[in-house]
Design a protein around this nucleic acid. Structure first.
Lengths: 119, 119
DNA sequence: TAGTTAATTTACCTAGTAGTTAAATACGAC
DNA sequence: GTCGTATTTAACTACTAGGTAAATTAACTA
């Protein structure tokens, strides 16, 4: 489908209105009007946000009479969590010593290279 | 500082170039030139990306002679992971039955309400 | 002091996004 | 068919984002 699926997921999640919509949908399906209620925003604006969320695969919509109930699709959030998890050991600080070691090593090498060139 | 910290983190992560920069920084500090090397993009463009990452708290920079080594700051990624984790039970499908149940209940209620109104 | 390298700033362009209002569509009720 | 409700589309404005080229700052080198 679209390239950079993860990118479009992050882009969709960057807006607080859209994150609030997802939070609401976590407790079950909602119609567009229900989703719009908490916000001081017109319906078309909400409609656009829903389109973005749908484009990112974060929601799906069915037709039910005049209503368009929205449903949360959490699969892309799994991808987000898995992507972030790759950095866990870094934010937990486990690599601090290794990181510092590598940095110092790199600095030394650079310094040596310069000294050599200088001669 | 800035409102919607999580939002600016997601916005920063939405760009594939920036995610690649973070991946590179995961294995240690890099200078701007080193970070720019893999991309067909001018230095100012990279500079802007770094500014965005710094604004989101995802990197920090020091001064070392003419160089500006960048360092990954993974704390915001922890926030991202924790935010996404709230939806884990949904993407794992554990709530599927409950969700379906709630949906049906809601549909019935709506139908009843309509029938009642009709009378 | 002049020259080189590393990086940023400035100025500019293009395309996309978030919001608006007003009109159009889709469906059920009468 | 006509009316009312739910939702989307169209057209517009204001702002932001990603990119470029050219000028500028900062620090080392000779």
């Amino acid at each position: 489908m679209s390239p950079d699926k993860l990118g479009s997921t992050f882009a969709a999640l960057a807006d607080p209105t859209r994150r609030a919509i997802l939070a609401r949908l976590a407790s079950g399906e909602c119609t567009v009007t229900e989703l719009a209620a908490p916000f001081r925003m017109t319906m078309p604006a909400i409609s656009k946000h829903l389109r973005v969320l749908e484009g990112a695969g974060l929601i799906s919509r069915r037709r039910e009479a005049q209503l368009r109930p929205c449903r949360l699709e959490a699969a892309p959030l799994k991808d987000v969590a898995e992507w972030a998890e790759r950095y866990r050991e870094i934010w937990e600080g486990r690599l601090d010593r290794l990181d510092t070691y590598l940095k110092e090593l790199q600095t030394k090498e650079t310094t040596h290279a310069r000294k050599r060139r200088r001669k």
